[in-house]
């Protein structure tokens, strides 16, 4: 199997309803370090991630995986800000995703149970997924993505709706998925989370990729005035 990464973005723009949401973003996302896409609400982070994952097509520009496109979509997964669960058990939700990826029979069941175990939800395997708490549902969403054994996992503000303790659990799982060898690409507007979970930062401001740096450098000596203002919690439009 040929390498999936790096993912190349060439002059990617996206406009909707006459508004430019992404403005000529060019970059390359390589294997290894955890990439955090950082920016304020409405900066275009989620749209950028959806374009990378193939849920949206760029208005202009192109994205290219290192491998053929149809194969590329099979080898990545995404976890959304608000998990969407089907009206069936926690275990069956994971099995559904595996079956969609053509994993069936005993292997499907084994992988689904293993994934539940990874996120500590084994005792709730038979519970209907939709009546789990918000934190449990997000862990289940991570298990569902993990069971697919993706090479790249996109996470769109995975803890934005969660309380601090559920956030810690979700962050621990993301670390474990990274440690198991999956490339992590995550959006957040939370500076603490970017420091905890990021190796490199892509800073997006008003649809433009303003800065890209290792997390340490980014927070110590931001190169752009926009990033500097964002870190200091200033309002750039004030």
């Amino acid at each position: 199997m040929s390498a999936l990464l790096p993912l190349r973005l060439r002059e990617v723009s996206f406009a909707a309803g006459g508004r430019t949401i992404l403005d000529r973003v060019s970059t390359q996302i390589g294997a290894g370090p955890r990439t955090v896409i950082l920016g304020a609400n409405g900066a275009g982070k989620s749209v950028l991630m959806r374009i990378c994952h193939g849920l949206l097509a760029p208005t202009s520009g192109a994205i290219e995986w290192a491998t053929r496109e149809e194969e590329g979509t099979r080898r990545q997964a995404m976890v959304f800000q608000r998990p969407v669960m089907l009206r069936r058990s926690a275990l069956a939700n994971i099995a559904y995703a595996l079956k969609a990826a053509r994993v069936t029979g005993a292997e499907c069941d084994a992988r689904a149970r293993e994934a539940l175990d990874h996120v500590g939800l084994q005792p709730l395997a038979e519970h209907p997924a939709r009546v789990l708490s918000g934190g449990e549902q997000q862990r289940l969403a991570l298990a569902r993505a993990w069971a697919l054994r993706p090479e790249v996992l996109f996470l769109d503000e995975p803890t934005a709706n969660l309380d601090p303790s559920a956030t810690r659990e979700v962050e621990a799982i993301i670390q474990a998925i990274h440690a198991a060898g999956t490339k992590i690409v995550m959006t957040t507007h939370n500076l603490g989370q970017a420091k905890r979970l990021g190796d490199e930062v892509l800073f997006i401001h008003q649809g433009r990729l303003v800065e890209r740096a290792p997390v340490e450098t980014f927070f110590r000596i931001p190169a752009s005035p926009e990033a500097d203002a964002f870190i200091k919690g200033e309002l750039p439009w004030a």
């Binding site: 099979r74 997964a77 959304f80 990826a101």
Partner: peptide
């Protein structure tokens, strides 16, 4: 469900059946 199902590679008839059942 749309984004989640498309992310899982489910569309067309299988997606419609999933929704009907759900």
């Amino acid at each position: 469900y749309q984004e989640q199902l498309r992310s899982l590679g489910v569309s067309g008839v299988p997606a419609a059946l999933t929704l009907l059942w759900d």
